[in-house]
Nucleic acid binder design. Sequence first.
DNA 1: ACAAAAGATACTAATATGGTATCATTACTC
DNA 2: GAGTAATGATACCATATTAGTATCTTTTGT
Lengths: 132, 132
Amino acid sequence: MKLITRNTDYALRAICYIAKQKNVVTVTELVRVLGVPRPFMRKILQQLSKEKILKSYKGQSGGFKLKLFPEKIFIIQIMHIFQGQVSLSECFLKKDICPNRGKCVLRKKIRQIENNALGQLRQISIASLVKG
Amino acid sequence: MKLITRNTDYALRAICYIAKQKNVVTVTELVRVLGVPRPFMRKILQQLSKEKILKSYKGQSGGFKLKLFPEKIFIIQIMHIFQGQVSLSECFLKKDICPNRGKCVLRKKIRQIENNALGQLRQISIASLVKG
DNA sequence: ACAAAAGATACTAATATGGTATCATTACTC
DNA sequence: GAGTAATGATACCATATTAGTATCTTTTGT
Ligand code: FES
Ligand code: FES
């Protein structure tokens, strides 16, 4: 079981790399640095640019830059993009079978854990990763 | 993205229900109470009994009981059974590309979150769920 | 013997993940 | 303004995981 999938992971590393560069970064360069399959990397970067995390420049000598400051990008945003809403506490039982959702202890406990983890993920910015 | 899958969820609820009963509980009863497909429920219970969480009784008027006290069964054990090891912090990059695993900030941060979540999961017993 | 339970095992369906492939568009360079 | 080197868009494919079915065997109380 993984909390972070491969594309999120690659995306994070790509963003970190880009954050450290002064100029635009091309897919070619990222592929060389990260050793990730080129078409996959491309797809990931395109998604990130569609989601306004990266800014893209077409044409010769184009590439990608961060659209936001590294302090303004958080792990959880990237997870959302590639993994959808992180929801640990959705009830799998039919609605009419567990009518007392409000009192359900299991759900409450799990929601607690969720909130903790999300709280932490919300605080980890790209900036804090790059500094290390 | 789900931290807890359907079979873990069903297993937890089944265990909770069984914990509350005095006598053995049959699949038929659980299916009625939880509204889960019968063959699926059967499979789940069989796994639980193979993993020594439940004790099974064959033959007429057979069924399942807890093998351990509810205080001794923890959510994380059930997750292990159905979802394998929970590992958030495995590195997806090729080993030779990120040689400085020790210093990797991303990895360290994620490991932190993992430890937190696992710590909490390790503490939630069936007993604490049933009390509510 | 019979019925009602679980055990074992193999199979199938649906969904999510991890990619490829291809063609269109943009923009710098000469 | 043609060529080239970049991204954009989109459709497709492969694999793994999750969710569930089907079937047959074994056990045991009556
Ligand atoms: S059983 Fe559905 S919310 Fe707890
Ligand atoms: S990049 Fe592999 S451990 Fe951080």
